[in-house]
Design a protein around this nucleic acid. Structure first.
Lengths: 218, 218
DNA sequence: GCGGAATCTATACAAACGTCAAGATTTTTT
DNA sequence: AAAAAATCTTGACGTTTGTATAGATTCCGC
């Protein structure tokens, strides 16, 4: 019998519970790697197990089913991504340094973790079909929106200009830009990142400098 | 032997070719329905055939493989969506009527064709993994960007204000808003559409009225 | 209406899937 | 050290998957 069931009775030493939870995250990590590589539609439990130190049978010992595993995986994603820009926020003291720091981080994220983020967009699309995923995906989405809002709040602080758009609109814009870039970037478009950064800078300037007379581009 | 092969030799009467193409689109339509209902990951060739008048064996007569079918499907999507707002553009003569027309259409699209659009986001996510889909998906993406741009161009015409942001940024924004709304809407959030429309209106006003002093919301 | 091409059905196949359970192995408790 | 509990392996199950092919059926020019 799995520890998890007994755990609910509260009779198990913390040590065991931790071990159980640790192995869960260890296996979820393996699932994470597999999903990032193959995508939701092509990821099987056996493939996940092969990216771990165990055989495929053990997955059913730690997870009730496939969706349970993937949800655990999704939570792992959240913990990993959601504080990404907080260090930059804390360090930057002027509009220019904040802008450069944020946009550099945005570009670096694209280049270094494209796989991770394509998994995010894949899973968010799956949530459109699988109700079981929706709660967790929506939760992460809100966290990401809050993450962006923290950045913009810092911009507001530094510039003295209250952010003139709602949080949801700001998130939609940056998320849209990021997603647009990701597809182009993975398709081999070397200028995609540059264009995304330019558009993000344009957005920031429009928000905090009231500049709208910039030129057209693609 | 399939007509397609002989067709490449150019020796077949147009009538036959048309029939072949027509049946292809007929089957692609069945695939389309299935995909919209189940999503990419859960759609099988047998399920597609069951949504058509034929058995699953015939799919291999008209399509070389599954990806071929889905690409055909994707092209069908394009033809269906890409001119959605053109009528409104043509009819509306003032900023207000254009705004109302566009936003109403946006809301109606969400409410009436949520399934169709979740398929789009699903397939676009698949393109992040399957190189075979990328060319077609990118092509559609550009068409959708152009569609949004036609709307904004009309706004520019009506208001006399040149659209102050590049096409790609505009598309990213509206696409991001739409996608954000779709997830919330499918999760049962009855106010999602209202919020999306509000944010879209905010964006349009910022673009063509230079108004940035609107209040915050979620 | 005959004959050949085009189209469709039916069935088969190997592979991969999620799930499960019996038992071997390891760890912990007594 | 023995007993009990937890953990992991192994192999199997019933489906479902994409693909392939042989043959039945329909269509169409002659």
């Amino acid at each position: 019998m799995a520890v998890a069931e007994v755990h609910s009775l509260g009779r198990i030493p913390r040590k065991r519970v931790d071990k159980f939870a640790e192995r869960r995250t260890e296996l979820a990590e393996a699932a994470f790697v597999t999903l990032a590589e193959l995508g939701y539609a092509r990821t099987s439990l056996r493939e996940i197990a092969q990216n771990s130190a165990f055989t495929h049978g053990v997955l059913h010992y730690y997870f009730t089913d496939k969706v349970d595993l993937i949800i655990c995986c999704v939570r792992l994603y959240k913990a990993r991504c959601v504080t990404r820009y907080d260090r930059i926020i804390a360090e930057a003291g002027s509009y220019d340094s904040l802008c450069d720091g944020f946009l550099d981080a945005l570009a670096a994220t694209m280049r270094d973790e494209a796989q991770l983020h394509r998994l995010w967009y894949d899973l968010r699309a799956q949530a459109l079909y699988e109700p079981g995923l929706r709660v967790d995906i929506l939760d992460i989405d809100h966290s990401l929106e809050a993450m962006i809002w923290r950045v913009l709040d810092r911009f507001a602080e530094v510039t003295g200009v209250a952010t003139p758009i709602p949080s949801a609109l700001a998130y939609a814009t940056f998320d849209g830009l990021f997603q647009q870039c990701l597809l182009q970037y993975l398709a081999g478009d070397d200028w995609a990142v540059t264009r995304m950064v330019a558009n993000a800078r344009l957005t920031l300037e429009a928000l905090y400098r009231g500049e709208t007379e910039t030129r057209r581009g693609s």
